Amino acid sequence: MGELRKTTDLVYDILKEDKAARDSDNVLYCRVLEYYGKRLNVDFSRVSVISFFSSVKRSAIPSIETVGRCRRKLQEEYYELRGSDNVERERRAREKDFRSYARY
């Protein structure tokens, strides 16, 4: 649970500072990788995909799914960290679509 709390705190800090990260999990995850890259002395922009996925597990870097879940939790709790109006509308529409799909 400590790692999840640490990831949530990191995501909170990024969302607070970076409006683009509020709108895109890809941008958010790139910021998370920048943080871990500095800690691990790794330039993830120069790592192969296979090496990347191996290092994620080995180095306890949170997955993009975990980062996305932390973002959703934080944006639900902190209105000021939510995405732009257009992105929030799109997310709600996709949520409705997924709920309909999941019923079948």
Rank of each mutant, 00 (worst) to 15 (best):
E3K: 11
E3W: 15
E3C: 13
E3A: 10
E3N: 12
E3G: 13
L4W: 10
R5V: 15
K6A: 14
T7M: 07
T7G: 07
T7N: 08
T8Q: 02
T8F: 02
T8A: 04
D9N: 03
D9S: 10
V11F: 04
V11N: 00
V11L: 04
I14F: 00
I14R: 01
L15K: 08
L15T: 04
K16N: 03
K16S: 01
E17K: 09
D18S: 07
D18R: 07
K19I: 13
K19V: 15
A20D: 12
A20N: 11
A20Q: 12
A20M: 10
A21G: 14
R22K: 10
R22E: 08
R22M: 02
R22I: 00
R22W: 07
D23S: 15
D23K: 10
D23Y: 09
D23R: 09
D23C: 14
D23I: 10
S24K: 12
S24A: 15
D25L: 15
N26P: 11
N26Q: 13
V27T: 15
V27F: 05
L28N: 14
L28P: 13
L28E: 12
Y29T: 10
C30A: 15
C30T: 15
R31D: 15
V32E: 06
V32C: 06
L33N: 04
L33P: 03
E34V: 03
Y35Q: 02
Y36F: 15
Y36I: 13
G37H: 08
G37C: 11
G37Y: 09
G37D: 06
R39D: 05
R39V: 14
L40H: 06
N41W: 09
N41Y: 08
N41V: 11
V42F: 01
V42Q: 00
V42N: 00
D43T: 06
F44A: 06
F44E: 02
F44N: 02
F44P: 03
S45R: 14
S45C: 05
S45F: 13
R46H: 05
V47W: 01
S48L: 03
V49S: 08
V49P: 02
V49C: 03
I50Y: 08
I50S: 09
I50N: 06
I50F: 08
S51Y: 01
F52D: 03
F53M: 09
F53Q: 07
F53W: 12
S54N: 05
S55Y: 05
S55M: 15
